[in-house]
Design a protein around this nucleic acid. Structure first.
Lengths: 213, 213
DNA sequence: TCGGTTGTTTGATCCCCGTCAAAGACCCCG
DNA sequence: CGGGGTCTTTGACGGGGATCAAACAACCGA
């Protein structure tokens, strides 16, 4: 499985993965490991598989001709992605960090009912994302983003961001500078607290919820 | 069918519909008629039916607490809508103009395959809408909107807009003033031509396509 | 046909966020 | 432990679109 050449980008393998790094991406049981920024599928490719994120994260995006990038979805640990209209991928999918994926074949394994539920949830999430990007201020977008991620990770109060400020900006329709300024604002207001750049503790969930619109 | 009380808002019935206006909404064969701004379903309601637009148009939207509105989809003649995750409507649906709808029951009439295709198309459209709203300028958004509508009406070169500037603004994340200014700009550039406020002729489709990003 | 209401256009001004710039923090890898 | 590249933060400034305001056009009902 996962024999495509494009995920061979030799990464700066982190210590935790090093023992497995011989034939990258190595398989642990059914889990394939990917370096950050590895392509999982490309726009125009035939879609045949679903993927389940075991750890790490995936960005699904499209590029405009002039290089602007819009990320339409992140997929976090425990989530399934790869289902697309017409059996052809309309977007690119890449890892944002070191990521483990397992494959789910479309034929079998999942019953039509589950597939339908997955499709409808994806539609709902895209539409809710639209609410955020269409009508909210920078601060509200960042707030909504943090709430969404925290809920999806199981209502945690400390989030380990699995993506860069650039990824977050391209997801929310903001620049990295505005993303950073919004995070700083939330910190200065005492709503969140940073333990390192990528680890955010939500100190006042009520106030965070309030400013999401 | 269509016995809910909320579409009884006595409308300013247009001449064309007047003969039928006795028991509103009247049925012509299987088609129910609705005045502009009639509610088809509300957020939180149990979803049991699909609706097919025979003529007119539908807006699907949600309101923020402070009154900001985001329209997540328009549905035009020939399109089917009403399919939602969890069997409960997550959005409001209203007519934008005088509209005829026919009901499609979820159980039967449509095979699971068709339902799946509908869900996946809706997800794709929401994501493509996200590309427009997330990263494009006002002029690009209006351009993309016109192209999308023209294609969905069957690659026509003259569009009868079934919605107001306010609807368009709330769909694209713009104010009515910006929508109006963008239309004026397209007119001044000779890309489109207006025959009345709601009728747009696309004079130079190539140039329109160019500025969609 | 006429008057009132609603929707649209255009102008003037303001502000949020994008852009440009540079310092600072973090993370690898040697 | 130390050096270099990448990512992040912060500051200064400018512009695109929001806001405020008013004239104008379209629509509908009387």
């Amino acid at each position: 499985m996962f024999t495509s050449a494009r995920n061979l980008t030799q990464p700066s393998t982190p210590a935790a993965l090093r023992p497995l790094a011989g034939s990258y991406p190595p398989c642990v049981g059914q889990i394939a490991l990917f370096a950050p920024d590895a392509e999982i599928f490309a726009q125009g490719e035939r879609a045949g598989f679903l993927y389940r994120v075991e750890f790490g994260a995936i960005r699904v995006y499209r590029l405009h001709a002039d290089g602007r990038r819009q990320i339409v979805a992140f997929h976090l640990a425990g989530e399934t992605f790869g289902l697309e209209a017409g059996g052809t991928h309309s977007f690119f999918a890449e890892t944002t960090v070191h990521t483990g994926l397992s494959k789910v074949s479309l034929a079998g394994e999942m019953v039509p009912q589950e597939l339908m539920a997955l499709a409808l949830r994806s539609m709902l999430h895209a539409r809710e994302h639209l609410l955020v990007v269409g009508r909210q201020s920078a601060l509200e977008r960042i707030g909504a983003f943090l709430v969404d991620i925290a809920v999806r990770l199981g209502d945690v109060d400390t989030i380990d961001l699995q993506m860069t400020r650039l990824d977050i900006g391209d997801y929310l329709g903001l620049t990295i500078e505005t993303v950073s300024r919004s995070f700083s604002r939330l910190r200065d207001e005492g709503i969140v607290k940073f333990h390192g750049v990528k680890t955010i503790e939500i100190v006042q969930p009520e106030r965070l919820a309030l400013l999401c619109g």
